[in-house]
Write a protein that binds this DNA or RNA. Structure first.
Lengths: 339, 339
DNA sequence: CTGAAAGCGCTAACAA
DNA sequence: TTGTTAGCGCTTTCAG
């Protein structure tokens, strides 16, 4: 039951460990017959390399981590899938880590010791404070993903939050909507997160159209879960209806929220798009299958993943270019919900 | 930029590496002043343990892997989130690995070398062949998740596939549906996967009700993606409509499929539940927000995760109990789609 | 083509 | 209380 090591193989095959190493790693200078004999013993004994030892020796782990706030959000699932595929093609291995909703979990996930296990880290900074990020070791290649304002010294790939939100809102206004609510929107303030930035885009689109942003149509939320959106929007609709001031369109800050909004509209007997148009943000694969087909802002995740991977790999390879701060393009995926 | 090691700290602090190790790991027998001096140097130099070395030495990694077929399926995201939380409470770290859709990817994910990095593995066997599983090393604690028939020697936690499907179908029949289609169902055959087992449950419910299972209402699918279900069911509905033989209910083999079915029904102008009742399987968090609220079989993921974690931890702790084969309870989460 | 020596960074065991 | 020795399993380097 004790693991079989190289020296076990070496002993049985009557060669040195080094020769076993050479055979196992397919290095050239080994005679065909020695190679054959070693491989036979390897198969016999069921030898397998000890990656930990290999890593200690190599000083590299061959693994990259993606740290996301939560495993159970489809957005991060899609992102992780893309990273895994791309990194796999480059011969690297992806481990996904959850930083958790709690601040504690986030700090532990980005703790130096844990990051030390990896050759590089792609870190989604949602929910991290500037100082937490600033405290990260700089001798480890790190690429930041997300919307926070982050220290200059890091490579950073972000979504076109303002522009995407502006496009979505303009899309609604162009189609004749005049009371465009924003689910998950926030009152004007310091632009720290996605909600704030996207709210800015919502305002910009109104101004572009010569309209005053209707701040009373911002519907803030404690979090961006579908269930929360469902509940909060249901309440907001009830109040609006009492006042006879229903919106004729909703821009949801994320597709998760859009889902909740869709449910609340359904419960309220409002048809999409006839009574209320609806558009979300993220273009999750599933929203096209939610009746009647939900429009969304496509944040070009493919682009984001490719750029982040390129940046990380070039850092791992030792690049000392000045840090890059990239913004992905955004476009509208128009579906029946905004027809 | 070269990483700071214990001996760096030791040299600067004027003590031995062992003392540094003792301080860093909070071991008792160190004088207060030595401890203080060492900690100061640690902070100064920005020393951090090298987990790889620690692991090589310890022979354990403190990390458990969850291997799932895909990152981008909400079901696995939910599962991973639960495991991460539970294992975190027990002081273990979870790394999630994607085995990929391809057989190649699956084999590489369960390759011995890769599993070697972990103290234990929770492996979702969807898509793996019996032989692949049988080839897994036995000197590593492994808990299998999923529906396959697997070698006896492994601990195995599975869903109540047959029973859950039977409950779902009975739920529809009880409400008066008489033409209950099964989206993603498969003709009778060897019960190897979830589709087959759930189709058996669908048959059992019919027989229990004294009905002949209407095999012509099985709608097979090449995969269980929402998009595939959307397309395949749309075609099936068109054909059924021509024949004047529409179903009055659909049991979808998974919630992903249920989503696609919902979309196809919508496109076909069929109302849920008035024209067609609909129920899925998995009880993903999001289905309650898909109009009109989709019923589903709750597979009790919490139970599954707890049992799997318990089994794994006791194996890691050295338990030599005979392997367990557990089946989770199942129940119906009834919502408006089957009202 | 093959092997011996050294050491990656850490800690258990023993010595002082 | 602190230090020394040895070695986890592997690979780089250099010698044969």
């Amino acid at each position: 039951m004790a693991p079989v090591t190289m020296s076990d193989v070496a002993r049985v095959a009557g060669v040195s460990v080094m020769t076993v190493s050479n055979v196992v790693n397919g290095r050239p200078r080994v005679s065909a017959e020695t190679r054959l004999r070693v491989l036979e013993v390897v198969a016999d004994l069921g030898y397998e390399v000890n990656l930990t030892a290999k890593r200690l020796r190599a000083g590299r782990t061959g693994t990259v981590a993606l740290v996301v706030p939560r495993f159970d959000h489809p957005y991060f699932g899609e992102l992780a899938g893309r990273f895994a595929t791309l990194l796999g093609e480059k011969g690297l291995h992806l481990a996904v880590e959850q930083s958790g909703a709690s601040r504690e979990g986030e700090l532990s996930a980005v703790s130096h010791a844990r990051l030390h296990m990896y050759d590089g880290v792609i870190l989604s900074v949602v929910g991290l404070h500037y100082d937490d990020v600033d405290r990260l070791r700089t001798d480890l290649p790190i690429v930041l993903l997300g919307e926070q304002v982050v220290p200059e010294r890091f490579d950073h790939v972000m979504m076109a939050n303002v522009e995407g939100a502006r496009l979505a809102t303009a899309h609604l206004l162009e189609r004749g909507s005049r009371r465009v609510a924003m689910a998950g929107g926030t009152p004007s303030g310091p632009s720290t997160g996605a909600s704030e930035l996207r709210s800015e885009g919502w305002r910009a689109a109104h101004r572009d159209a010569g309209l005053e942003p209707p701040e009373d149509l911002l519907v803030p939320m404690p979090d961006l879960e579908a269930a929360t959106a469902h509940r909060v929007v249901a309440e907001a609709l009830a109040r609006a209806r009492e006042r006879g001031a229903l919106p004729d369109a909703v821009f949801a800050v994320t597709d998760q929220v859009s889902l909740g909004v869709r449910a609340a509209l359904h419960d309220a007997g409002l048809r999409v798009p006839q009574d209320v148009r609806l558009i979300g943000f993220d273009d999750l694969g599933l929203v096209q299958h939610v009746p009647p087909g939900l429009s969304s802002v496509d944040p070009h995740n493919g682009w984001i993943v490719e750029r982040a991977t390129d940046l990380l790999l070039s850092r791992i390879a030792g690049s000392t270019e000045p840090p890059q701060h990239l913004v992905a393009p955004a476009s509208i995926a128009a579906r029946a919900s905004t027809a």
